[in-house]
Design a protein around this nucleic acid. Structure first.
Lengths: 212, 212
DNA sequence: ACTACTGCTGACAAGGTTGTCAACAGCGTG
DNA sequence: CACGCTGTTGACAACCTTGTCAGCAGTAGT
């Protein structure tokens, strides 16, 4: 009567596929719940494998988290750079660019991951993940649109400020604003993003702020 | 020979004092290592008591964390407001104000705590912890210095932007900037803060950015 | 088909965390 | 000085998490 429980069918992936699947699941949990959300059992369950398999592929939980972070940072840099190079210099383009970047930071989870990296001190080793290259690209574009020569610092700081605005709005916007928890004030958020886009564009077009 | 180990002297505090001491220790751990750093055993050890005592006073770990967060948010609001009302409208004052606020966010740990609150979704219930009151104070001050009437939105968003700049710089500044981990680039950070202070002040004095 | 390789697994170990409980011990009161 | 209130504690329970290990089971190469 009691049918001998047959062991569940064991699917076998390539090491590459398995690693990717595990990374995907772990990353999802990282975005949703933070690094403490990456529990081997849970990640394994998400993928449909047993937790020792995760250990088998990554050696330890710590190295798994490192791998997730590394992949994410790489993706983030790529996406941001891609969005930047394809942007125009008029107001409509600037606003659209900010919306795209904000979506990546907010919905895409980049902001949360960045915050986790910072808070846990889990900085991916020697990755050129700075805004400097982005600022250089931006500065070059800015110079072509103007006769006078604003300082690079001014461009760099503006890019930094814009990044902090998007990052901050994505992470603590509702909190700083005091939005009700269930219904973050998306309308105000959007107005803020647009206002910021215009401010930045305006600053780029107008003279630089006194840097000294 | 083996002296009977005498039980360590048991000091007895008022419930109030005990709660405060526990909150202090837990808060320190929250700032240093995040919410997951609040472990009952550790907190108890810091205070010099046993961990069931912590449970006795707070009921559960979760409620302890809530209490810590609540107290912190209250403190943060108070401190920021206090710094704001005592600030002048000239450039020197603006820069000084930004430095004070940055110190609170960075060294003081406000930024980290705010980030943890956001990431863990541990929003203190219905606390008027928004920037709105601050923006209102600022707007009122701004109006006295100008003839035309900039929109409140413009002031509000500027305050938000400034807050995000300080928050972002404190949390992810070194990461976004790509500073070497051991030696965050304090010089650049300071220049950025000063640049931001001037930008904000300049924006307040000059016309508002097109809000539509 | 046999075999080597390796992805994969159940069972178990070790350690750590929150929470419960009965009992102990200061301290103010009658 | 006895008594009650309550801050405090050691011991224990229940649970969870990471990590190890010997062995099972797909898959490719011969």
């Amino acid at each position: 009567m009691a049918k001998a429980r047959k062991p569940p069918p064991r699917t076998r992936r390539t090491a590459e596929d398995a690693r990717t699947a595990i990374l995907d699941a772990a990353e999802q949990r990282l975005v949703d719940a933070g690094p403490s959300g990456i529990r081997l059992q849970d990640v394994a369950a998400d993928v449909g494998i047993s937790h020792p398999t995760v250990l088998h592929h990554f050696g330890s939980r710590d190295r798994l988290v490192d791998a997730v972070v590394k992949r994410r940072v790489h993706l983030m840099n790529q996406e941001v750079l891609l969005a930047l190079v394809g942007a125009g210099a008029d107001e409509r383009s600037a606003v659209a660019l900010f919306e795209r970047l904000y979506a990546m930071f907010s919905t895409g989870g980049h902001a949360r991951v960045a915050a986790f990296i910072a808070l846990e001190g889990r900085v991916p080793g020697a990755d050129p993940n700075s805004l400097l290259p982005l600022a250089e690209v931006t500065h070059k574009a800015r110079l072509t649109h103007r006769e006078d020569q604003p300082s690079f610092d001014d461009t760099y700081f503006t890019v930094l400020l814009a990044a902090f605005a998007l990052f901050g709005e994505a992470i603590v916007g509702p909190i700083f604003r005091g939005d009700p928890e269930g219904a973050p004030d998306e309308a105000t958020s959007k107005r803020f993003r647009e206002w910021t886009a215009r401010l930045v564009l305006d600053h780029f077009k107008r003279g630089g702020t006194p840097t000294e």
